[in-house]
Nucleic acid binder design. Structure first.
Lengths: 169, 169
DNA sequence: TTGCAACGTCAACAAAGCTGACATAAAATA
DNA sequence: TATTTTATGTCAGCTTTGTTGACGTTGCAA
């Protein structure tokens, strides 16, 4: 992929000529798509009286069980006070468990409780459902392209964040 | 595009089999990408003491000069009180002009002033710059796929929103 | 004339971001 | 050992942006 200019003539595509209008449409599509993307979980969250910030915390704790507060702060990119407010409530509500580390007892390792996992499943199921429908409708090649562009849009340090996280104590 | 299953064997791609993990990665990529996507304009906005809501209003007024308050409400999907707060300030700061319609004098038609256009250019230039870099790095086929998936993710009523808007008085 | 539509606005509230300041416990280091 | 740094928690205060409910005005339309 990503070859540049091959056969007859310097077509605009080959030179990756991008009009402001093409880019503007992409920008608007990103705005509308993100709203669609968050819509289903948002509806579930209001029922439980949580917000998007709670969803994000739950999501990343689920994907990285045992991650520390500091780890979460890095991924989420918010202030510790802001994260703490969210986390405090999730812990009080017993959706998240916080355990002091054994090798470094200053750190707090975070886990979803069974009830936390239940909510996570409810949220991620809804979000995956929409994502799956979009992927299916667009087809596998479109999905590959989608992921490539997203990887380019994000800040480089978050590329390839996936790949099971360290979660050891 | 979007053919389904052709040659030997029912490959997973051909059946559009999508693992939860694939979908989860797409979901996370969407989160990180959206953050990257808004980062540059956000930095500019803080200098001017505006927020993302102001950016959105400016963006859509720029794209649809003469749009009404009601039109903006539809696209942005927020309450009129919320939009009004943003708009009131932009008008007070003389970035946006509001003119009563001539055929229906109840409506307010919105336009960017010269200064409004200046800020819009500053914001959209930064955002297009990142988008352009992402598009260039990913290549034209990836871009096509990106757009297809975004179109699927958004609520259907916003598909093809682009295409120059009515802006007559 | 009566009613609906488009808009503006006040009030009150909530979510979620921020900064600054301070506290504690534990690790790391001098 | 004494000191400093790190990881975390928390209080206070402020901002932006979203919500709902209520009410007022102007103007189009029946």
């Amino acid at each position: 992929m990503r070859e540049a200019g091959n056969s007859k003539g310097p077509g605009r595509e080959d030179l990756l000529f991008l009009t402001d209008d093409q880019l503007r449409k992409g920008i608007e599509a990103m705005f509308f798509a993100y709203r669609g993307f968050t819509r289903d979980p948002d509806k579930i969250l209001v029922k439980h009286a949580y917000g998007r910030a709670h969803h994000r915390a739950i999501h990343f704790i689920n994907g990285n069980p045992g991650t520390t507060v500091g780890g979460l702060l890095e991924v989420l990119g918010v202030s510790k006070q802001s994260l703490n407010r969210v986390l405090r409530r999730l812990i009080a509500d017993k959706l998240v468990e916080s355990r002091a580390g054994t090798i470094d007892r200053r750190t707090r390792h975070l886990f979803l409780s069974d009830e936390g996992k239940r909510l996570e499943k409810e949220l991620s199921h809804a979000q995956r459902r929409r994502m799956r429908a979009a992927y299916r409708a667009a087809g596998p090649e479109a999905v590959a392209g989608f992921r490539e562009v997203l990887d380019q849009l994000m800040e480089p340090r978050y590329r390839g964040y996936n790949n099971t996280r360290d979660s050891r104590n």
